[in-house]
Amino acid sequence: MEDNQGILWEVFLQPKAGRPFKHVGSLHAYDKTMAMESARDLYTRRGEGNGIWIVKAEDIVASQPEDEASFFEPANDKVYRHPTFYTMPEGAKNI
């Protein structure tokens, strides 16, 4: 017979309505119902959550560290995407 500790799931928690979901940790479970309930039992013991997402760890597509330079550095010199790039005439409000 097979024996193992189930598959790995990643848990995301929304602390309050309206807030973004944030990764809080992982757990093992054999099916998604169990994974959801274990996430509740494990990661919301102190009332930390209002919503839970779970996803199989193997289904997550992650960027590779070796792509770091080509992925993220090109954004560094595009300062015109930030509001502080622009000068406003003295006294202008709420633009």
């Binding site: 169990m34 274990s38 039992d41 494990l42 013991r45």
Partner: peptide, 11 residues
């Protein structure tokens, strides 16, 4: 039978 279940039954 496994750690997650241990915590759940304690809840």
């Amino acid at each position: 039978p496994f750690l997650e279940e241990d915590l759940a039954s304690m809840n």
